[in-house]
Design a protein around this nucleic acid. Structure first.
Length: 633
DNA sequence: CAGTGAGCGAGCTTCCGCTTGACTT
């Protein structure tokens, strides 16, 4: 008998089917041991030696694995093909080798790049050893996260009492939200004016155009900053006569989106279905684990925690067949589309994109066995997957140029017409309110038929006042998108990052937008001032570069940790020595309008610089945080 | 004498990433 160990039990079940009765496939259920949540788990004095502790919940899984391993001919570690997967394989090997009956057995490391019969059999017949560089990169990542979190958090407890935690990921996520709020507070709306005109064509049809250039100057967003400026121009244009000077028609096309990753699925489920990130993940988990169906439990989708955008060749073939037969030949591109080149920052691509396990299980067929929300998410995934293999959508964009007689004034009208819907037949865009592009809105209309040199009559000029708008607060979807862009967090953690920030009372979700609490602002100001390097948006990306160097053998992992610790340790001690007064002064520099002060009695209060009588400008009353602050020192 | 309350001190909190399943609504 051969023992195969993977991470997920649902995957174990599938692989067992592929491999037959000579193999027993068991799941580790993720990581099996970790650093204990207490001081001293990483010994910075002695080569960052780490203490590992078996998770209580993992004991029974490890017991089963051990029992089978004792009798196994081959022990195959088939955890995920990424850094954490390699680490789990290494942990398992260490734990199993502690057993005398297993100690001398050979361990084989195997990876599957997709879960199909062929890929699994191929993996099993190409075993290798555990990659020590990859495990070392994990060690560095793990130790650094522990050291950052378990050193900064206690400083917050004493310097900003009532604050709970800081960390490489959560503190930067918080900072994004706080910085955005700061931008909104400082935002000054800017006035600008737009100049448009409705002409009448010879066939008495209305033609909407906008002023494009005036006496050699191209008109841009801020060309007219006030009414006076635009009135001057209006006076000069009023008496002019206009005709069509050029007609330009150009085709353009749009390609479909890549199939879902965790991040894009969370974003789209939020926009289209209104699901929170955690709800999306819960539902996807059910679809992945399988629903009772035709007397069997079948997983309906592939693994839902992934940063990969490629899908298996078999699945592509099925999609192309389906498009050809059910949707129409003209929707099938000549070549299969390949998305493996479009890699997100720090993506590990250990799994395929999220797709239906069988494209023939259409949303219609599945509806009867799924609940409402499951059916909605399944349909979204099914459509996105199929659309990703469909033909481009095609448009024709028409641009009309309109000139006065002396050719010194140009208007332009643009319109675009969809010639072929292509992938949009299955999958359309929904934009969040802050993503809507106003120019694009203007662009969607169909233009009336005109001829070159045609005279335009009866112009109705229209000047309109506008103000620029502040940047929007982050939603769950836009925060996840931003985190992914910065390479911060992983598919398995996006949803939990959001819940940590809320649980710690650092942010509030109001009408689906994140607003930082006073505490959140205070913590960010504190970290930004005193731990600048570690809450930099690029800290994780820089760390990942070092981890890559460990993986490729260019640098020792201990060297990376030493370099980090030398500087960080100094930083920690400097901050510990700061008195409350110094901390308050520093914070006031970066908190904008809100200042913290201490009176003769040592009470700390919160005031607004620009309000008379120190009146508070904040919506929240002086809350628990400020009295707590008073006990510092 | 019994019951109340001010004041003090001790002990606790925490990271990220990989899994699911047991909770509640």
């Amino acid at each position: 008998m051969n023992l195969v160990i993977v991470e997920s039990p649902a995957k174990a079940k599938t692989i067992n089917k592929y491999l037959g009765t000579d193999f027993k496939v068991l799941a580790s259920y993720g990581h099996v041991r970790d650093l204990p949540s207490k001081n001293g788990s990483v010994d910075t004095e002695h080569d960052f030696k780490m203490i590992w502790e078996i998770d209580p919940g993992s004991k029974k899984h490890l017991k089963e694995i051990t029992d089978y391993a004792i009798d196994a001919d081959r022990i195959i570690l088939a955890t995920d093909p990424d850094r954490e997967g390699e680490a789990i394989a290494w942990h398992l090997k260490c734990i199993l080798e502690e057993n005398k009956k297993i100690k001398d057995k050979k361990f084989e490391r195997v990876v599957f790049n997709e879960i199909t019969k062929k890929a699994v059999e191929n993996g099993i017949s190409n075993p290798r050893d555990i990659n020590p560089e990859l495990v070392n990169a994990y060690m560095a990542r793990r130790a650094l996260d522990y050291l950052v979190g378990f050193n900064i958090s206690p400083i917050l407890w004493t310097k900003l009492p009532g604050s709970k935690s800081a960390g490489r990921v959560q503190s930067v996520a918080l900072r994004l939200i706080v910085d955005r709020e700061h931008d909104i507070e400082l935002f000054k709306p800017q006035e600008y004016w737009t100049f448009t005109c409705i002409f009448l064509t010879q066939q008495k049809k209305e033609l909407n155009a906008r002023l494009y250039s005036f006496k050699g100057n191209k008109i841009e967003k801020f060309s007219f900053k006030n009414e006076q400026e635009i009135q001057n121009v209006l006076e000069q244009i009023k008496k002019e006569k206009f005709n069509i000077s050029s007609i330009d028609k150009k085709p353009y096309r749009r390609s479909p989106y890549a199939p879902f990753t965790t991040s894009t699925m969370q974003q789209e489920a939020s926009k289209k279905l209104g699901f929170s990130a955690s709800r999306t993940m819960q539902i996807a988990q059910r679809l992945y684990q399988g629903i009772d169906f035709e007397g069997d439990t079948v997983g309906l989708i592939t693994y839902m925690r992934t940063d990969g955008t490629n899908i298996s060749q078999d699945a592509i073939k099925e999609c192309r067949n389906y498009i050809d037969k059910e949707i129409g030949k003209k929707y099938l591109p000549n070549e299969a589309r390949n998305y493996s080149g479009k890699k997100a920052k720090n993506a590990q691509e250990a799994h395929e994109a999220i797709r239906p396990t069988d494209i023939l299980r259409t949303p219609e067929k599945m509806r009867s066995i799924l609940d409402k929300d499951q059916a909605k998410l399944y349909e979204l995934i099914w459509n996105r997957t199929l659309a990703s293999q469909m033909e481009n959508a095609e448009y024709e964009r028409c641009t009309l140029e309109i000139l006065n007689e002396s050719k010194s004034i140009t208007f332009r009208a643009t319109g675009s017409v969809q010639v072929f819907d292509g992938f949009l037949k299955l999958y359309q865009d929904v934009k969040e309110e802050d993503e809507v592009d106003k120019d694009e809105e203007n662009d969607q209309k169909i233009l009336p038929e005109v001829k070159i040199n045609e005279k335009l009559e009866n112009p109705k000029f229209n000047t309109e006042q506008h103000f620029t708008e502040p940047p929007p607060r982050f939603s769950e979807a836009s925060l996840v998108k931003k985190l992914e862009e910065l390479g911060i967090g992983r598919p398995s953690t996006y949803a939990s990052i959001i819940s940590v920030l809320s649980a710690r009372n650092y942010v509030e979700l109001v009408t689906k937008r994140f607003i930082p609490t006073d505490r959140g602002k205070l913590i960010t100001a504190f970290l930004d001032k005193l731990f600048t390097k570690y809450v930099d948006y690029n800290f994780t990306a820089t760390l990942e570069d070092s981890l890559d160097e460990i993986t490729t053998g260019k640098i020792e992992y201990l060297k990376v940790l030493e370099n980090f610790w030398k500087e960080f340790y100094k930083n920690i001690n400097e901050v510990k020595e700061l008195r409350t007064r110094a901390v308050l002064d520093l914070l006031n520099e970066s908190l904008g309008d809100i200042i913290f002060d201490k009176d003769q009695n040592g009470n700390i209060s919160k005031k607004c610089k620009n309000c008379s009588d120190g009146e508070l400008s904040l919506k929240n009353p002086i809350n628990t945080m400020v009295p707590h602050l008073a006990v510092v020192e």
